[in-house]
Design a protein around this nucleic acid. Structure first.
Lengths: 228, 228
DNA sequence: CCTACCGATCGGTAGG
DNA sequence: CCTACCGATCGGTAGG
């Protein structure tokens, strides 16, 4: 959310510069409409790519598939992204920034109830299932399962964002460990817990499986000791 | 270890077979040696494919890569496998059959100690980490992360084998649930636990991370209530 | 953003 | 199992 307007500004100035150079060097009205359009086309491409990357995988999805999904011709995505892997990275980055924002909001919303560590973790777990499995949740699964196709530099960006996302989890797990509610080593617990949650992408079926609330409760019951 | 000597035999006999075919077309002995050869070449292909599929992914690995890895020419893998995805399936099937056999052996070996449900689960968890992360463990990770590239029929075979693998887990989880050592729903517990374990493929580094023993102990501490 | 196109690569096959 | 090859597809680009 917080970065969508900068994104728009950027593509705007780029677009008008290009059009000026190519079609009417001479000077026509500054196009405010076109500018918004261009930013949206980028987002539309990202959303379509996310869906296809998640469904078919990165390698099995051609840039032509993506172009067709948004009604473009085969070469046009490369007007918006310099490469297929830049598009992949954009999908992941947008997904991570949204997930971080959503997580922060969930924590802030829960604060009024003055939750303890266990309750806070429950909020994070529930929110994480939403990020993974909720409506419109193609971005994070793509990040989880297609990172192999990223360049080294792109992986660095993802690691940073993942660190940001995991930051609120660490002190909670530490607190629970201190209270005897979490018996395993904190670092390994974090890795194992994220695994348990992230793996749900492989088997969860929105129409047949339990609700996300049920899932989150089961996960908490599995990880957290009932009494100290 | 147990398959390294067959591996060696293979390349030997292949070399002599090749020379025969190229230099002496005219009537050579019926090839009993060749037959064993053929089976071994198949296994060598499967092993090389497993390694490449795991490292680079199925789509990013060409059949030429695989051929080169075993010293064949580009078209030759198709003498042994009718398609690239048949090779993938063979990798997975071999991995699953070996994993099932290894799991059965681990359970049988533990039986002499008359283990309780908790101890049996610990054996399964420890063995599962070995299957996922131990030496020569490319097959199962490939199965876990490349199933998307299987045909529908091939997926059915995998589902059967996975059911066989998971079979010993279910009664144990049920028993632990009955004893109050596992609080969450049994079916969801199974899915979450496998997720926690399987995800280790993504982050475990044999040189830097904890030992598999430590990992297995942490997992047990995370999942199982300390007291009923 | 479209049109037209290129070089590279890929899975797979025929024929020996 | 090799040799020689094919049709299809792919990421990406020039030029407008």
């Amino acid at each position: 959310m917080s970065h969508s307007s900068p994104l728009l500004e950027i593509s705007d100035s780029r677009a008008s510069g290009l059009v000026n150079a190519a079609k009417r060097p001479r000077g026509r009205p500054r196009k405010t409409a076109d500018e918004r359009d261009d930013g949206n086309r980028r987002k539309v491409l990202i959303a379509a790519a996310a869906k296809l990357f998640r469904t078919q995988g990165f390698d099995a999805t051609s840039t032509r598939d993506i172009a067709a999904a948004v009604g473009m011709h085969s070469g046009s995505p490369f007007y918006h992204f310099e490469s297929k892997s830049a598009l992949l990275c954009a999908v992941m980055e947008e997904g991570m920034r949204a997930a971080i924002a959503r997580q922060d909001a969930a924590l802030k919303a829960a604060e009024t109830g003055e939750p303890n560590a266990r309750e806070k973790l429950a909020v994070l777990v529930r929110n994480h299932f939403d990020v993974l499995l909720g409506p419109g949740s193609d971005f994070i699964p793509v990040m989880l399962y297609e990172s192999r196709s990223l360049s080294q530099a792109q992986r660095g960006l993802m690691a940073t964002l993942q660190g940001e996302y995991e930051a609120p989890w660490v002190p909670l797990l530490q607190a629970l460990h201190g209270q005897g509610l979490l018996k395993a080593d904190v670092k390994l617990s974090r890795l194992l817990i994220f695994g348990a949650l992230n793996w749900s992408v492989q088997w969860y079926d929105r129409s047949k499986s339990a609700s996300l609330d049920t899932l989150a409760q089961a996960a908490m019951a599995l990880f957290i000791q009932e009494t100290a």
